[in-house]
Design a protein around this nucleic acid. Structure first.
Lengths: 198, 198
DNA sequence: CCGATATCGAACAACGTGTTCGATTCTCTG
DNA sequence: CAGAGAATCGAACACGTTGTTCGATATCGG
């Protein structure tokens, strides 16, 4: 993806920007961050920023690659562990544990107003995970995308719905395992029935 | 909500702004609209706009009240029709038919980048609908909000997921009734099991 | 050491926002 | 229908943000 640049200055600059951006997200949320904020905190010249990234969102995408890759990897691991044995949707536990571990980062996702970019990126990862998982579990149904896709969108939407609510209500204090169990109980029966009848 | 103003000028101005705004949404999507765009199309003075609305979003909310009310009303009607008899989640058909009827308006909701405000407003309506419906169907479970809420968020998320996908893929060509049926098949079993065991 | 390259930083143009205020026009009421 | 009150106009303004440019300077890799 990003073939580590040879020049030390480039590495330095990108690292400064990336970490400044991250801490700003934790501190005030993505929407309220201004390019100037990033410049100040990273102590990097304005023109330098635009020499590396097109804009704020570009920087976000670049920085998000790590998280995305990590999630996908965990997903695959959990996938092959379970083989085809475990409960349907069991592999999605990685999403919940991941979000639990990076709660501070993902919390802004649930903010009512403003852009949903951060949530959108998590959604993409979940989307990939779910689609691949369902495809491998129901090879016959998977051929017909008007059969598989609705199920995928249904599961992803439901999952994101629960995630956002979970993040937004710290007082609820479910563990990742608990909320995932609830998700499983709610989603599994319908999805199984829907896709089993190929 | 908005106690129809007595002064004709006020009514006129608000109507001009509202309809200009709506046609702009249809034409270029919420995000790309500028206050100046609205002013030009409505042929209204700048200061006049700010005399009525705090900003773009305020205008959106005001204009959205109609849709919101309509949806809630349809929901209630469909609710009492079914009594407690019909299939669980049957009343949600109104959401799908509504979106189908106003496809042009809701389509921007599925745009990847940018704000999700429009979708958020639809979500709020669906949220109300679902919560009230589930509450009336499962009075015992409803008492415990850690029981009811996850189910609500699950259903709303799943519904929105399907809606967005549906809007985004005109080529799929499901009717409102069909997509709602799919939704029902996917959601009903899990929700019923989850909430029945009070 | 040196040529190439990255960074700096100030200045700039463009755009969007929201406010102000005096002049003008319209409406409701008595 | 007159006139007090209220709404509208519109231009100007201050402000913040964005993305670009360019010459001077610092730093790198070979």
């Amino acid at each position: 993806m990003s073939p580590s640049p040879t020049d030390r200055r480039v590495r330095r600059t990108r690292e400064l920007l990336r970490s400044a951006f991250l801490s700003l997200i934790l501190e005030k949320g993505y929407d309220r961050i201004t390019v100037q904020d990033i410049l100040d905190k990273a102590d990097v010249g304005r023109s330098t920023f635009y020499a590396h990234y097109r804009d704020k969102e570009d920087l976000l995408h670049a920085g998000f690659e790590d998280i995305r890759a990590a999630l996908a990897a965990e997903g695959h691991a959990s996938e092959s562990d379970a083989g085809g044995a475990g409960a349907l949707l069991e592999p999605l536990i990685v999403v919940f544990t991941h979000v639990e571990a990076h709660r501070r980062f993902w919390e802004p996702m649930s903010r009512k107003g403003g852009t949903n970019i951060i949530g959108g990126m998590l959604r993409e990862s979940v989307d990939d995970l779910v689609r691949e998982h369902l495809r491998s579990r129901f090879p016959e149904s998977a051929a017909d995308s008007t059969q598989l896709e609705p199920a995928v969108q249904f599961v992803v939407g439901a999952c994101m719905g629960l995630l956002v609510w979970w993040l937004d209500h710290e007082e609820v204090a479910f563990s990742a395992r608990e909320i995932h169990a609830i998700f499983g109980r709610l989603a599994t029966p319908g999805v199984e029935r829907f896709l089993a009848t190929a």
